[in-house]
Nucleic acid binder design. Structure first.
Length: 395
DNA sequence: TCTGGGGTCCTAGGACCC
DNA sequence: TCTGGGGTCCTAGGACCC
């Protein structure tokens, strides 16, 4: 195998993405704190907030009730995922003008690979293009691997550009706190603090045996490499989904099992649709429940044969619910499919009775949904659906 | 202040098999 | 008769990321 060509890696990260799109499209929001997220009355949290809001101490994942207290004068918005996805696609398309080697990490982040030596120049051009053409602020970090590009990006925020080259690691990276390393969260940081490791430099100087005790073998080896600026992860342009999940926290806890099952039915239909749309089937189906006291359980089961059928997903989650769901009330219900396989119709067995009919029906419904969107369909389903939600499964 | 939703990856124990 | 070792799969929980 030939060694991968030497390239620069750029991490492009759209600043406060959802809030920036709103400020772009609503000039009256500019210069003001904008907070995108759920509502305080329905247990929402902050999804994204503008830098004006951050000055009040507001940040992502904060309970909305707290954000309202900290910054009552902010503009609060529910967000418009459809719009953000469309804008994200425009941004990704813009990146493609500069390089074909792109790994989209999330809706607002992507790694780009360019020839060695061209990283900073290209990143500056991309920032200018995104600003001029899409009117959005973008921060970029440049290095020779993903890890250092990511850290450089963190140091350049907001609306900046910086690089962090391997030879600068001792001088620039080692004085910084552990939390600048991706993968070191609050729990790991606390464990390391307890044994006197406070900076990235401390981490780099600690014998691996000490780290293994705190973090386990795999994490110890990896984070010691990271502390030295070493990262061999390749760019992955296409990533296969490994699981799909749908979950819902209720505005007020749900008390009755029938109401909860109706939610599981909606989730099963959504997951079935997503599987079929992706041409995948799942061998494992799981249930997640959170009780009123916030304790959370997950249960899953692996099937003999992979499925993409709403009714089968629903059957399994309900079975798990009846076995492990307890008394309620429940704060959250979630459904998950994993162990995904590419859909293949080949089977030497006859499909179970009713399955063919359901497949045909499902096909029609998927097509309708693709054509007219979820709104029409969900409404149609709900009309017939309250009955379906209470029907005994498996028939 | 009372804790979202969508994911990925890791650990650890037990079952089961050779 | 109280005694193995390794490998894989499954399940539950948790850390972490955006």
């Amino acid at each position: 195998m030939a060694e991968a060509q030497a390239r620069d890696i750029i991490l492009c990260d759209l600043d406060a993405f959802f809030a920036s799109v709103e400020q772009r499209d609503h000039p009256e929001y500019r210069g003001r704190p904008v907070i995108v997220g759920g509502s305080a009355s329905s247990r929402g949290v902050v999804s994204t907030c503008s830098y004006e809001a951050r000055r009040f101490g507001v940040h992502s994942a904060m309970p909305m009730a707290r954000a309202v207290k900290l910054c009552p004068g902010a503009i609060f918005l529910p967000g418009n995922m459809k719009l953000y996805r469309a804008v994200s696609e425009q941004v990704m398309a813009l990146y493609e003008r500069f390089t074909p080697d792109i790994e989209a990490v999330s809706i607002d982040e992507a790694y780009l690979a360019v020839p060695r030596g061209e990283g900073l120049k290209t990143a500056a051009k991309i920032r200018r293009a995104v600003r001029d053409e899409l009117e959005l602020p973008l921060t970029a970090g440049v290095s020779t691997n993903k890890l250092l590009a990511k850290i450089a990006c963190g140091m350049a925020k907001p609306d900046g550009l910086d690089s962090l080259w391997p030879e600068e690691v001792p001088q620039k990276l080692w004085p910084l706190p552990l939390k600048v390393l991706p993968g070191i969260g609050p729990v790991s940081a606390e464990k390391l603090h307890r044994v006197g490791i406070k900076t990235v430099g401390d981490l780099a100087a600690t014998p691996e045996s000490v780290l293994v005790q705190q973090l386990g073998q795999a994490a110890a080896a990896e984070c010691r490499q990271h502390a030295r600026g070493i990262d061999s992860r390749p760019l992955e342009p296409v990533r296969q989904a490994k699981s799909f999940s749908e979950e819902q926290t209720f505005a007020t806890d749900v008390a009755g099992p029938e109401a909860l099952k109706a939610v599981l039915m909606e989730q099963a239909e959504e997951l079935g649709y997503r599987l079929r749309a992706a041409g995948m089937r799942a061998r494992t189906v799981g249930l997640k429940l959170r009780f009123a006291d916030y304790t959370t359980i997950t249960r899953d089961v692996t099937l003999a044969e992979a499925t993409d059928r709403d009714s089968e997903i629903y059957r399994v989650t309900v079975q798990l619910f009846e076995r492990c769901g307890g008394e309620g009330p429940w704060r959250l219900a979630g459904s998950r499919v994993s162990n995904l396989e590419t859909s293949r119709q080949l089977t030497i067995f006859a499909p179970p009775p009713g399955a063919v009919k359901e497949d045909k029906l499902g096909e029609v419904r998927d097509r309708l949904r693709n054509k007219y969107g979820t709104e029409v369909l969900f409404r149609a389903r709900r009309l017939a659906g309250s009955e379906a939600g209470h029907r005994k499964p498996g028939r």
